[in-house]
Each structure stands twice: as structure tokens, then as C-alpha cells.
């Protein structure tokens, strides 16, 4: 792999990283507030290391988004953020054990298919 083709991967990896970290941060936030469900008072529900992880993930995802946006079309990169719905639904089902209806999975498939069309449309 040449140096230039490696460099060409940076915006794409930043975009994927931003989406994955952003989705992971949401699940972390929910996991954190779930684990402190019995805490007294609203504020203490947020005093969890998982909530700290959400904040760090939020900052990291924003920085990666800026790197991606510097190189990619806005009309290509922004719709791709919709993939986070697919990731969050998947993680909510498998990690948080939330019930997901069949219609919800159909919606997730449509979003995935939409992302594939946008990816096919080129950078």
C-alpha cells in the first residue's frame, strides 16, 4: 500500500470511527444510568464511570467528525451518521437486552440499505 492510498483512508476511517464511537457512547450512557437506577436523586444517576465514558466518546466523535468533514462531501458524510441508528439498535438488543420489534428491525435494514446506496454514490 502506497503512502497516498493510506492517506486516502484517513477521512473514511475518521467517519467510521466517529459513527462507532458516537454510537458506543450512547449505549455507555444508557448502561451507566441503568446501572444506577436505584440511586436517589436525578443527579446521582449520572455519577457513573460509564457516563464519563459517554462524555469522552462524545468529544472524540466530534473531533473525528471534523477530520472526516474536512475531506468528504457534506452530502456524503452527514447521511452516513444515520448508520448510528443501526449500531445503537444492535447494541441495545445484544448488550442492554432491550426488546426490539420486527418493524424496528425492518427500519434498521432500510437505513442500512440507504447507507449502502450513499456509499455506492462515491466520495
Amino acid at each position: 500500500m502506497t503512502t497516498s492510498s493510506k492517506a486516502a483512508l484517513i477521512p473514511w476511517l475518521s467517519l467510521v470511527g466517529s459513527i462507532v464511537i458516537g454510537a458506543g457512547a450512547q449505549v455507555s450512557l444508557k448502561y451507566g444510568t441503568n446501572s444506577r437506577k436505584n440511586a436517589t436523586g436525578t443527579l446521582s444517576r449520572y455519577l457513573s464511570p460509564w457516563v464519563g465514558l459517554w462524555a469522552a466518546g462524545f468529544v472524540a466523535a466530534t473531533i473525528l467528525w471534523l477530520i472526516a468533514l474536512a475531506h468528504l462531501d457534506l452530502s456524503y458524510a452527514y447521511p452516513m451518521l444515520g448508520l448510528s441508528y443501526v449500531l445503537v439498535t444492535g447494541m441495545a438488543a445484544f448488550i442492554l437486552k432491550e426488546p426490539i420489534s420486527r418493524l424496528h428491525w425492518v427500519a434498521v435494514l432500510m437505513i442500512g440499505a440507504g447507507a449502502a446506496c450513499i456509499a455506492r454514490s462515491g466520495l
Binding site: P79, A107, M110, I111, G114, C117, I118, R120, S121
Partner: peptide
Amino acid sequence: DRWVGIGLMTLGIGLLTYGA
């Protein structure tokens, strides 16, 4: 294809609601 993709995604996100 970008329009088709964006249309599918917007519909999918709208549909998420009814599947909730």
C-alpha cells in the same frame, strides 16, 4: 444513488418510531 440512499434512510428513521 445518493438521493435514493437519503430517501431510504429518512424513511427508515421515520419508521423506527412505529417499531418502537
